[in-house]
């Protein structure tokens, strides 16, 4: 177990109002009780030392997806990552903004493109049948197909760790968007499967996935976008034959 009495952070700093180029700033936090804590708690202690440090955060329990960042080189949520897992001898914990996204300030990135890719796959149920007076029926087995898909929290850990997305952020939907596409394609209540598949049937939207699997490695909810993308590709093949 690492020595937790002193927590060292090295944090990416940038403010566009400031003439300085981006730089890494060190913070040393005293932790006399050697208490393990979540990285978000450590960041809040750092912010007490330095009010100018900016990062997003809200639910502090891994469901709102606000505090995604690059932690020791891997994307994750600060609020569900214990510092004991990050300490590496005397080296500080390195925190950078999510890669591949424009930086607004410090650890805050601009997610406009990410959200646009999400919207592109029409992330809403489409059903042309008239609405019944009560619920549309769905068997527990049909509902089970949505498990592992609907839990996405749009934190962008996956998409911003995807090299294919780094190359073509304006064209490739990316793992988060495709996971959602799969969520609606798999929903027995959605009647637009053909249209959804046709929309994705082009060289960029779906087929830029190279099965690198960074997305599945970093997902803080344990979801597997690569697998979901594979399912869509399989359905595409089935449809063509």
């Amino acid at each position: 177990m690492a020595d937790l009495s002193e927590i060292k952070l090295s944090i990416y700093r940038f403010n566009p109002d400031d003439s300085r180029d981006p730089y890494m700033q060190d913070y040393v936090l005293d932790n006399p009780e050697k208490k393990d804590m979540m990285l978000l708690d450590a960041l809040l202690l750092a912010k007490k030392q330095d009010a100018t440090l900016s990062f997003r955060h809200s639910c502090r329990e891994g469901v709102c997806g606000s505090d995604a960042m690059n932690i020791n080189g891997q994307n994750g949520l600060a609020c569900v990552t214990p510092i004991s897992k990050l300490m590496r001898g005397s080296k500080p914990i390195e925190l950078r903004p999510l890669p591949g996204m424009p930086v607004i300030t410090d650890l805050v990135v601009d997610l406009t493109q990410f959200y646009a890719q999400y919207e592109k796959i029409k992330p809403f149920l489409q059903n042309d049948e008239p609405e019944p007076a009560t619920e549309r029926l769905q068997s527990p087995e049909e509902r089970k197909k949505l498990d592992g898909l609907y839990e996405c929290i749009l934190c962008a850990c996956c998409t911003s760790s995807c090299p294919s997305y780094w190359w073509n952020p304006d064209k490739f939907v990316g793992p988060a968007g495709l996971l959602q596409a799969s969520r609606f394609i798999s929903d027995s209540r959605d009647t637009h499967t053909d249209e959804r598949l046709a929309d994705l049937d082009n060289p960029f939207d779906l087929y830029r996935c190279r099965k690198i699997m960074n997305c599945a490695t970093v997902c803080p909810k344990g979801l597997n976008p690569t697998q979901a993308i594979g399912h869509i590709q399989q359905q595409m093949l089935d449809r063509e034959t």
Binding site: F124, L125, E135, R136, L137, S139, R143, Y150
Partner: peptide
Amino acid sequence: HMGLPFSRIDSGK
């Protein structure tokens, strides 16, 4: 109807 993925019972409700 909006798509909320409710859990289901055997009858589909």
